[in-house]
Design a protein around this nucleic acid. Structure first.
Lengths: 150, 150
DNA sequence: CGCAATTAGTTGCATTGACAACCATATAGG
DNA sequence: CCTATATGGTTGTCAATGCAACTAATTGCG
């Protein structure tokens, strides 16, 4: 008789990769929901770019690629969407005619005060009830896992 | 003067959600690479469906939705791709004319022996050098995080 | 029985993302 | 100086996914 613990589905569910994917998928859809309920048509990826720009505006697209680990076409198109929403504008770089500097608009800057509390609340719910020590181990482990495959 | 540790980018990088997303993105692209290097045109999502079918073939699409946590359109289109590759076939259900039972083909079944070693090697690399205790805490924490947002 | 509500699955649309090909500009080496 | 190469960014293609709308078949209730 086949040992149930050698079934692949079971093996799969013991792999961290499985849980990372599962949590991420759920995070992504919930993030969509939060923004939608706030009356915004914003994607999680646009959010991630916004956070970087709040930290430092006037980045080139290549710099955004580096900080977000996304490739050039992806950033290009995420910015298309953000520009259409009026949150950022692309400006010419006086030093290099190839590069385009991405700057927050007034409207993009204004989102910070509105969205940070929402997202902080979500993060709090996400991590609710989990001992700080476990969170720390998990954070450290995720960093090591990331190094292992990068 | 602004404390750099209150900058949003820094805050962001302390959030588990950030690392979950980062690790998952990397997992996804590396998984693509592994299959491509094995001469297969297979996506990580098709792989996930295959694993479920190796465990139990002849599932309905709704059952696949439940086990993979994907929605109906997504499963429908993932199966389109797998059918095109000849790994699965959709059969009519004698009990219910609405449902379609998904069965592995000979070719889909044959992939198991070929791919499991590859993926197990990848998972080993992924978790390499991390203490078993940390992996266990991380697994448990990911499960709790998942519950928190589901 | 008969019609309303439910369920299984597909299709349409927009965004992300992997990847290749491409354009324009900048840099480096002869 | 001038051509080869490298770099910044865009476009195209295909697949995954969130969501709404839809078809077809089934179930449930009066």
């Amino acid at each position: 008789m086949r040992d149930q613990f050698t079934d692949h589905g079971i093996v799969l569910e013991r792999a961290l990769a499985f849980w990372v994917q599962r949590v991420q998928a759920q995070l992504r859809t919930q993030t969509y929901r939060i923004f939608r309920e706030a009356g915004l048509s914003m994607t999680p990826e646009q959010w991630a770019v916004l956070v970087r720009l709040w930290e430092r505006s006037d980045m080139t697209q290549t710099e955004l690629c580096d900080t977000t680990l996304k490739d050039k076409p992806t950033i290009s198109r995420i910015l298309d969407g953000m520009e259409k929403q009026g949150w950022v504008a692309r400006h010419a770089d006086p030093q290099d005619a190839r590069t385009r500097r991405v700057r927050l608009t007034r409207s993009g800057r204004a989102l910070e005060a509105r969205l940070m509390p929402l997202v902080q609340g979500f993060v709090a719910d996400f991590e609710r009830g989990i001992p700080e020590a476990d969170l720390a181990v998990t954070r450290r482990t995720l960093m090591r896992l990331f190094d292992n495959i990068s």
